[in-house]
Design a protein around this nucleic acid. Structure first.
Length: 230
DNA sequence: AAACCCGCCAACCGCCCACCA
DNA sequence: ATGGTGGGCGGTTGGCGGGTT
């Protein structure tokens, strides 16, 4: 059993107070990100380093957009999920100002249901042929984590999952079956992106290291279709 | 008005991977 | 080659607020 990243007994848990937020912001503005394990002590926070990192990345970062997702952002998430599966960090990287956590939550609470209403299986983006659409509406009932557990692609954790996911996606086209369940989606991923081109993202490298990291990740991803992004 | 239900989302957990000594 | 460490990721949990009964 791996030892915990920090001594949990002395750490705060749960919601962050404004004072804690301010301490974290002040520290990072002074010293920059990184060294998350030692940061809490240095910043005078009774928090786990990982907790600090999450708080900064998902909530305190100055370049976060927050607020409702625009329609083009929704479309892009759906398209990217069809290609990448549950690789939220990669998906979020194509949405400037959005975090993987935010995208993941939005997918699970909104988009998953939206696809189901369209008669599309959100797990593989196939048209749901077994059930009439009215029935698929009924099965959409729970978006709870338990339902995700049973439906989730087992291999989703590894990078392999994107390939497998993608293979399903391609197999549909190859087999001449009813193609993938994205009849209304324009798969040209070079458009409709809020900060559309990768080049633009790269231009922001100085200001936004996250964007550049993801640009590299996407470029290096295995799936040939991902060349669409490059 | 109160109890209950449900969805959202911030935060946590555990695993994996890259890096380094 | 190997073990330890830090960082990152996806899955899951639980509190809270709004809606419904």
């Amino acid at each position: 059993m791996r030892k915990p990243c920090c001594d949990k007994r002395d750490n705060n848990k749960g919601a962050w107070s404004k004072q804690e937020d301010q301490k974290l912001i002040d520290y990072i503005q002074k010293h920059g990100e990184g060294s998350w394990r030692t940061l809490p002590q240095a910043a005078g926070l009774l928090r786990c380093g990982k907790s600090c990192r999450l708080r900064w990345i998902n909530y305190l970062r100055p370049d976060l957009k927050r607020g409702n997702f625009a329609e083009d952002e929704e479309d892009l998430i759906i398209k990217l999920h069809a290609l990448l599966g549950n690789r939220w960090s990669l998906i979020a990287g194509r949405l400037p100002g959005r975090t993987d956590n935010e995208v993941k939550n939005y997918w699970n609470s909104h988009l998953r249901r939206k696809l189901q209403k369209m008669g599309i299986d959100p797990n593989n983006h196939r048209l749901n042929q077994n059930l009439p659409r009215s029935q698929t509406l009924n099965t959409s009932g729970s978006t709870s984590s338990s339902s995700l557990k049973t439906n989730a692609t087992p291999a989703d954790k590894s990078s392999k999952s994107a390939c497998e996911h993608h293979e399903v996606f391609n197999a549909e086209n190859d087999s001449g079956d009813i193609p993938c369940g994205l009849p209304d989606l324009n798969l040209d991923l070079t458009i409709s992106v809020p900060s559309s081109s990768l080049t633009k993202v790269e231009e922001e490298e100085e200001r936004n290291p996250y964007a550049s990291k993801v640009a590299r990740d996407v470029k290096s991803a295995e799936s040939p279709t991902l060349l669409l992004f490059a």
